[in-house]
């Protein structure tokens, strides 16, 4: 069995300091990675504030709110895990790691549900998009009024979005006046790429959590001596949380929403309450 200090280090202090520095440096790169995306977002948000508002209004802020609470709670539990590790409390460590994993998994489950709902509403620009039946109906009605419109709409996303927003209880903007549906596609490209990257980071984080649980459970892991690994893992986990703390206002809160709407959206998403 390998000792706690790897062969190329002189002592524990040097090893721990290196590991911590390594993780901080990695987080610097992560800041720049997401920073690039945030920067592009900022440029377009300044150019097209109204379209971003409209895009945001079409998102499911109910799920996002619950997810925020889940992630914040997981930040607490992973910090408690460091504490347990520090106190050589193996059971506590296991429990807190497990709790963190469960909270993270719940987040991903809800996020998957949210993507599913977005897809059902047809809020997917580009080649994966399709025209939803509701939007089709609405389009037919519009065409009855204005027969110069082509038989099939030029862009399915635009029609789906118009339909979705016209049924929003909170957002009152009108297409063409308050927002241009085609530009909202830009917003949605940001939405999918940024949340997608965040999800990928969550998956990696969950992998690390499971790995540390296995090490703890098999007893191979001298937790009191190597708690620096739990600590650096938690740094990463906190970072991923932080990214979400930026995504939430930038994506979900850029448009108008109300608490009641959020509540309804969430209940509907998990199959409680009426729906249409």
């Amino acid at each position: 069995m390998v000792g706690p200090v790897a062969h190329h280090f002189n002592n524990m202090a040097q090893q721990q300091a290196s590991v911590r520095l390594g993780m901080w440096l990695f987080l610097v790169t992560e800041v720049l990675f997401f920073g690039g995306a945030f920067c592009a977002y900022t440029v377009y948000r300044i150019w097209f504030p109204k379209d971003f508002e409209a895009g945001s209004a079409a998102l499911n802020v109910g799920i996002a709110s619950v997810n925020t609470f889940l992630l914040l709670a997981s930040s607490l539990t992973i910090t408690l895990a460091i504490r347990s590790c520090y106190e050589s409390d193996r059971k506590g460590l296991m429990r807190n790691l497990l709790l963190t994993t469960v909270l993270g998994t719940l987040f991903l489950g809800l996020k998957a549900r949210e993507y599913h709902i977005d897809y059902q509403e047809g809020l997917v620009p580009g080649v994966f998009g399709y025209l939803t039946p509701h939007a089709k109906e609405a389009y037919e009605k519009e065409r009855a009024v204005n027969p110069t419109l082509p038989e099939t709409p030029e862009n399915a996303f635009n029609e789906n979005l118009k339909y979705a927003l016209s049924h929003s209880k909170v957002y009152k903007g009108k297409p063409g006046e308050d927002y241009e549906p085609y530009r909202v596609q830009l917003f949605f490209m940001f939405y999918y790429s940024m949340t997608g990257l965040h999800v990928l980071h969550m998956v990696v984080g969950l992998g690390l959590l499971v790995w540390q649980m296995v090490l703890t459970a098999t007893g191979f892991f001298d937790y009191s001596a190597r708690y620096v690994y739990i600590e650096t893992m938690s740094l990463y986990w906190h970072f991923v949380d932080m990214v979400w703390m930026f995504l939430l206002p930038l994506l979900y809160l850029a448009g108008p929403h109300t608490a009641t709407q959020a509540m309804e959206q969430f209940q509907m998403a998990i199959g409680l309450g009426g729906g249409h």
Binding site: W47, G126, V127, L186, Y192
Partner: peptide, 12 residues
């Protein structure tokens, strides 16, 4: 996706 952030057609 066929559409994206640098696409001038969308205002990108």
């Amino acid at each position: 996706f066929g559409v994206g952030i640098f696409d001038p057609k969308l205002g990108g």
